[in-house]
Write a protein that binds this DNA or RNA. Structure first.
Lengths: 123, 123, 123, 123
DNA sequence: GTGGTCTAGACCACA
DNA sequence: GTGGTCTAGACCACA
């Protein structure tokens, strides 16, 4: 369900939080949907439970998640327009910009870049 | 010359190191080229000199940079094939994969993704 | 456990790193053994934690130490032949050569030199 | 005449100064003897003249060298007892102690250590 | 001018 | 508890 990479330099709790945000924005996670328990996720990704817990707390503070005593974390009701295509594309912007910067530093042409993306999507 | 983002979660010295690596792989920085001095970069990016220094040391340990006493850091001679297009595209892979993952979590279609990239590149 | 001398002109972090290397080569530190924490060593030698940390990072980059999040630094598995007597004597060579050079500049005879070493070792 | 090693971590000017001190203590350099010029030494060891100059100034401040306008640096008159065997052996002490420490960290036995020294002296 | 070392101290990520 | 990152600032070695 989630992809966590301890090598990337980005704190794990941030990676997790960002992925939840994206799946909410994308509509894959909707109001009322339940998330895996802290322990479950921790086990699955061989990570300390406190790390998962920190991500959940962060998302709760942001209003993305709701906590109910004794129940799994749930997706909170989202503000309107959250799921509009525009909103979702906006989410992707920083990564796209970062990608373009990288490509230019690598002297990869725009065509090559688009082509590489295409190939990765292909199969 | 470099783009450093203190918010990104990735340590600044790692961001800098990665960008130097890319510009070397891309051929924008070549053997013998001198990098800005530690102090210069530190001032420019409002960052502590030691942070820059740490990136330089890392790159020296990797063999990307050479140090000559009292002189600015220089690009070291690179191994062959370093600049081949394949090598450069390989550099971009992790970011591309990360982008695709994000897009899928956002339920952005492949066409929309390619289209977004196109628009960003456009003019 | 370690002897650090701030006056010697050799950077403290390098002194520490070299002593760890030696104790690994000598077999006093073995795969899996844990090193004192950064803070502990820093306190003990009245030195800044970052100085210790720098030595540890250097040794990790060399493959002498392993890092596990939240845990003390551990000795990494060493390449074979690392502990052979020959390997260990090789480690000592530069110091022996330096000693002989010094003795000759001091016009100390070879017999006197060996005798001095003997006396220091005696009891 | 001198052996300078830029890799050793010990500042070059300190290495040079220490070697002059030893040759004075050992009697190879005596009152009135002239040292090579700053330029000469700098050229010979591919080192910046200021580095040599710094060593000479240090030794002058210590009273080991004398400077006379327009003349090469000379060895200054030394205090008595400077050349006694005891004084010369005392000079060697720190290095001997350092060597023994290293040997013990390498788990090299006392016999092996003495034997290694012997072999190095042999030819 | 260049980079290197070290300190004192704050705050972070993770177990 | 562990190590990592970063800052502000002093001083050193060398060109």
């Amino acid at each position: 369900m989630f992809t966590l990479n301890p090598q990337s330099g980005i704190p794990i709790y941030r990676q997790l939080a960002e992925q939840v945000r994206r799946m909410v924005a994308g509509g894959q996670l909707r109001e009322g949907d339940e998330l895996p328990s802290v322990r479950e996720l921790a086990l699955e990704h061989a990570v300390n439970p406190m790390t998962i817990s920190k991500a959940y707390s962060l998302l709760e503070a942001e209003g993305v998640l709701m906590r109910q005593r004794g129940k799994p974390m749930q997706i909170a009701p989202q503000k309107k327009q959250q799921h509009s295509q525009q909103a979702r594309l906006l989410h992707l912007r920083p990564q796209l910009e970062q990608l373009v910067l990288s490509a230019r530093q690598l002297e990869i042409t725009d065509e090559q870049l688009v082509e590489s993306l295409r190939q990765l999507l292909a199969p």
